[in-house]
Design a protein around this nucleic acid. Structure first.
Lengths: 67, 67
DNA sequence: CGTGTAAGGAATTCTGACACG
DNA sequence: CGTGTAAGGAATTCTGACACG
């Protein structure tokens, strides 16, 4: 699925999904057309990351915790 | 999947897939965004229809044969 | 009749940037 | 730091039409 569907399902704006990825929280692969491609597992990852960020944990720490 | 993917998989131009549908050979449902939505079974249907049309059978007869 | 193409619009995505606090 | 938005481009889809043979 593409980023728009992930956004609808997680309630996380596409802008933020891209931001998390930029911060090094791996959430997507690229399709041949350059668009990000997500699967079910990615949806869960986005949800978990968003939950921690909402709890006030900086993305740097979320990333560290994921290690 | 959308019409573009059906076209790539069947080798039938999107223009023709729409044409078959217009002729009453049912091949698609509509998504909420107005785009045609296809599944695996639709791909097979498009292939069968295209085969008959290439064999010279008019779409009217292909439709009749499908009844 | 089956198929191609140009036309104009809409929706989605992409990136890099400015904004705020 | 996390998030919104405007900017400009690209790819895909939609419809109705003109073209040809």
């Amino acid at each position: 699925m593409k980023i728009g569907e992930v956004a609808r399902r997680t309630g996380v704006a596409p802008r933020l999904v891209r931001y998390y990825e930029q911060q090094g929280l791996p959430t997507a692969e690229r399709a041949a057309d350059g668009y990000r491609r997500y699967d079910e597992a990615d949806v869960e990852r986005v949800e978990r990351v968003a939950g921690k960020v909402r709890a006030g944990i900086p993305t740097r720490l979320v990333k560290a915790a994921a290690r």
